[in-house]
Design a protein around this nucleic acid. Sequence first.
DNA 1: CGGCAAATTGACTCCACTCAAAGGAGGTGG
DNA 2: CCACCTCCTTTGAGTGGAGTCAATTTGCCG
Lengths: 252, 252
Amino acid sequence: MKSSATVLRFADSTARAKIACSRCSLGELCLPRGLCAQDIGALEDIVDRSNPMQAGEHVFRAGDPFETITVVRAGCFKSYLVNEEGQEQVLDFALPGEILGLDAIHRGAHVSSCVALDTSAVCSLSFDSLSELARGIPALQSELFSIMSHRIADLETVCGDHSADQRFALFLESLSQRYSRRGYSTQEFTLAMSRRDIASYLRLATETISRILARMKEEGLLEVSRNRLRILDADALHAIALGGSGKVSESA
Amino acid sequence: MKSSATVLRFADSTARAKIACSRCSLGELCLPRGLCAQDIGALEDIVDRSNPMQAGEHVFRAGDPFETITVVRAGCFKSYLVNEEGQEQVLDFALPGEILGLDAIHRGAHVSSCVALDTSAVCSLSFDSLSELARGIPALQSELFSIMSHRIADLETVCGDHSADQRFALFLESLSQRYSRRGYSTQEFTLAMSRRDIASYLRLATETISRILARMKEEGLLEVSRNRLRILDADALHAIALGGSGKVSESA
DNA sequence: CGGCAAATTGACTCCACTCAAAGGAGGTGG
DNA sequence: CCACCTCCTTTGAGTGGAGTCAATTTGCCG
C-alpha cells in the first residue's frame, strides 16, 4: 500500500507548478478524500506547495488578507489569537492533512495566526479557485462542508465545561487518535507543542499541565520525558476523559 | 437544475409549496443575502416552512438523521449537547436568520439537539438540495462557507479563557448587536432563555449569573426584571467585555 | 389560594491560579 | 570545550474566583 508515496522534492530550481496529490502519502487523510483520479488532477492544478518551514515560521498572521487555505503537509502547527493585553490564546494544533484558516473565510482577513511548531510544510490553495472547483465537483464541495462542520463540532466539544484532568485526557485521546490514523503509534508520540501551548489551548495554567502530568505519571497512566509521551493505561485515561472521577469505575 | 426538487407539503391540505424569501422580513439577514431575484426564486423552491412552534418543542434531537439545515424564521432557539451524566451543555442561542445544525453535516446525524425557547418558527432546507443549488450559484455557495466560517470564529471567541464577568458582558453585547440588526433596541431586550441556560452556555453556575446581574444592577450598568433587560452603561459593559478590570479604566 | 419551578441570596469549600524558586535543556560566544 | 544565558519545566506554598449546598423569595398557573 502506498509505495513511492514520498518522492518529495523541494526548494531548488525544479518547477513545482503541479503537485501530485495522487502521489502524496497523505492520501485519504487530506482534501482529495473521495475524489476520483480525474478530479484529483483538477485539484492538483490549484495546489501550491511550500518549501519546508522551520519551527517558529508563520504561515499567516492575524490581519493578513485571506486568500488561501492552508493544508498541513508535514509537521505540526498551532493557530492562536492574541488579545488586547498581548496574551496568546491557542486555538488549535494541526497535523498533516488538517486545514488551517477556516475562521478567516467570512472576513476576508485572518483573525488568527498560524506558526510551525516543528520542521513542517504546507500546501496552499486559493480559496476562490477551490470554491470554483467545488462547484463542479460535488464530492469536493461536500468534503469542504464536511471539514468545516467537523471543526465546528470539535470546537463545541473543546468549549465544554470540563475539569482540568478531563480536558487533558481529552486532548491526549484526540492526539492519539489523530497520530494513529496517520500511521504512528497510538500509545507513544511526541508532543510538538510546549506545556505552555497545551495549557493555553486547554485554558489552564502551565503549572497545572505539569502537575497533571506528574500525577498521571505517578498513577501509572503514562510515561513522559521531555516531549516524548507514552500512554500506559488508555482505559483509565478514557474514563477520565468521559468525566467520571477518573478512579477507574464509579458504578451508577 | 432541480426545479421541482422539493415541493414539500405538510400535514394539512393547504398547498404551501413555495415560500417567498423575497417577501420575508428577514431579507438580508438570512440565507438569500446577496442573491439576485432569480437566484432567490431558485432558493425558494427548496425552502420548507414550518408551522409555528411552541416553547419546548424540538426541531431536532441528537441522533436524528441529518437531512436539513434549519433557519430560524421567528423566535429563539437553543442548541445543546447532553453528556453521559445527562447534563446539558448549551452550545448556542439562535435568533431569526441564524442557522442551526451545522455541526451535523459531517456525520450525517445530529450531535446536538435544538429546542424552541419561545413561540417560534423555522425554515428547513434539504442540505443536499442546497448544496446542489449552491453549485450553480456562486454567491450562495460563498454565503454558506461564510456562515460556517463565522460560526467557527464565534466558537473560537466563546471558547476563550475569560472571567465570569467578561463572559457575561460578551454575551450581552452579542445579543444586543444581534437584536439591533434585527430592528430591535440595542439597549433593551428580552432574554428568551433562563438563567440556567445562560449559565450553561457560559460555563458558569446559575447562581453566578444571578450574582453578576445583581452586582451589575447595583453598579448601575443595567436594569433587569424577570427576563426584561436594559443596558444603562454600554461603555462600562464594553470595558468589562474587553477583559480589563471592568472598573471603568485602567491606564496602560 | 396552593403548589411548583425559577431565581436570588448567603455561607462555605475547593479547584485551579498566582507567586516564587529551583532545576534542566539548548544555544551562543569566548 | 566550557561558561553563561535564556527559556522551559517542575515543584511548593498560599490565595481567590467560582462552585456547591442550602434556605428563602418570587413569579406563574391551575
